[in-house]
Amino acid sequence: MRINKFRLMTYPYIGWIIVMIVVPMLLIGLYAFTVPGNDVASVKFSLDNFARFATDAVFLKVVGKSLWIAFLTTVVCILLGYPIAYIISKAKGNKSMILILLLTLPTWINMLVRTYAWMGILQEGGVFSSICAFFGFEGVSLLYTDFAVTLGMVYNFLPFMILQIHTSLAKMDNSLLEAASDLGANRVQSFLRVTLPLSLPGVVSGITLVFLPAVSSFFIPKLLGGGQYVLVGNVIESQFLTAGDWHFGSAISLIMAIIIIISMWLTRKIDVQPKKEN
């Protein structure tokens, strides 16, 4: 009896999930496998949308570039984020709290506003080009380049990576490091053999949190990459908002979802499992 009463409390949540997640997902599936009929009511099943995507080299190139930029962003985030997270986790008492606060402080400001700020910094006549001009390099503009887009993404998504890695480092039992030291490992060996492998789960969830938004972001490439700069997020956006082809847009979304699921599955494979020796 009691259990059933508690179960009642989950109903609003289940309802929310159905309305806000399951139904839209089903709609995307429905749109992706259909083409527009003569009127709204008639629905024709077809794989045309997928065929169009697979046969058009332009779309494949866009997907390839999106994955590449997202991959680059993730790698840079790991390389920058790990040392920062390590330093924060080793900081004592209040220091680590202050560092985390400083890290998350910018995220309180709207992402769009912060990305606009980068436009100001990178464009010709902006802060960066003024500095270059001071050293005699006139008219330098980094805006509308791969570099600008990657920079924007790293800037926006780095905190997620740092926080994930920091969490896994902070909850690590200090006695494990003492044990490593006791067994003859110096600091470097302790790090490589104990700290690093034990923090991998944090890195993996960091990758998830950076790679996912990076691969589907559309306003960062739009603002920092310029009107001609197209990533897959922009294609989907234009299919829905400009071209009005919801069917094709849904198909691309579905394809991206599958690609992301596969890449995440591959990442999970490197997650820590006690190695089985034979």
Partner: peptide, 25 residues
Amino acid sequence: LPPYKRDINTVFQKYALFPHLNVYD
């Protein structure tokens, strides 16, 4: 001398076994 240079080993209170390695490792 740091711990790793001492000819002394410790069995820790909560064992401090490495969770990412199996028994052999």
